[in-house]
Write a protein that binds this DNA or RNA. Sequence first.
DNA 1: TGATTACTTGAATATATGTTCATGTATATG
DNA 2: CATATACATGAACATATATTCAAGTAATCA
Lengths: 121, 121
Amino acid sequence: MVDKRHDVDRCDCNVIHEEIVNQVKAKMPLEENLYDLAELFKVFGDSTRIKILWALDEAEMCVCDIAVLLNMTQSAISHQLRVLKQARLVKYRKDGKIVFYSLEDDHIKQIFDQGLIHINE
Amino acid sequence: MVDKRHDVDRCDCNVIHEEIVNQVKAKMPLEENLYDLAELFKVFGDSTRIKILWALDEAEMCVCDIAVLLNMTQSAISHQLRVLKQARLVKYRKDGKIVFYSLEDDHIKQIFDQGLIHINE
DNA sequence: TGATTACTTGAATATATGTTCATGTATATG
DNA sequence: CATATACATGAACATATATTCAAGTAATCA
């Protein structure tokens, strides 16, 4: 019987290192969890959103204040706040026509700090 | 004299909350640092790269082994390894024709774990 | 030396994403 | 009730990015 694993180009390494590859495969988290993790980091992977989160870590703020702070249009900020809302990173409360946003999660700053450690190594 | 700050659409909030906005502005990290931080998270924001990093945290591996592990082409993996190399997240050593990659940074896993805390809250 | 292996690289392609612009909605105000 | 304010939203646009394909390089081996 011929080995029919044609899905990807294999090489001799795969035979030699078969055991190691299998061990790593066994220890890998679920595909779904790694996908979710990548989605979370994708949200952090934009400087506008990083700035918004950093600002909200200092104080609850309304949309137009964030816009002025970052020197961007309200529309652009609003679009990004929607992304942050969907990722459950920010929450909001309405006070008349004003919408105040704040952080939903306490340890966002901790994730940032870990990232800064890498940058400043 | 008229206020000439036409750069973004301003609203009454900006006057009312002026002090808070200024305080937050004063505490914000340098634009450059936040940009670098976003760039780092951008690298983490792809499930292929997350998987590669997670695998390399378990064991040093060559390109074709990673390709088989993730069921992707060597070319695709090689392209992503270049991104990870540029971000100083992985390093490599050559042994004949085989190139072994490993993690450059010890606390990548810590950043991932922080992210998983948010996901599994 | 010629062929094969392991990997890299550049161009092409499809897809995703951030901002702008125009418009829509909800609340406050005169 | 008409107008203004604060914000949200959809479409359009430009840009970025992940993978594929084809070709190229360096090391090994017959």
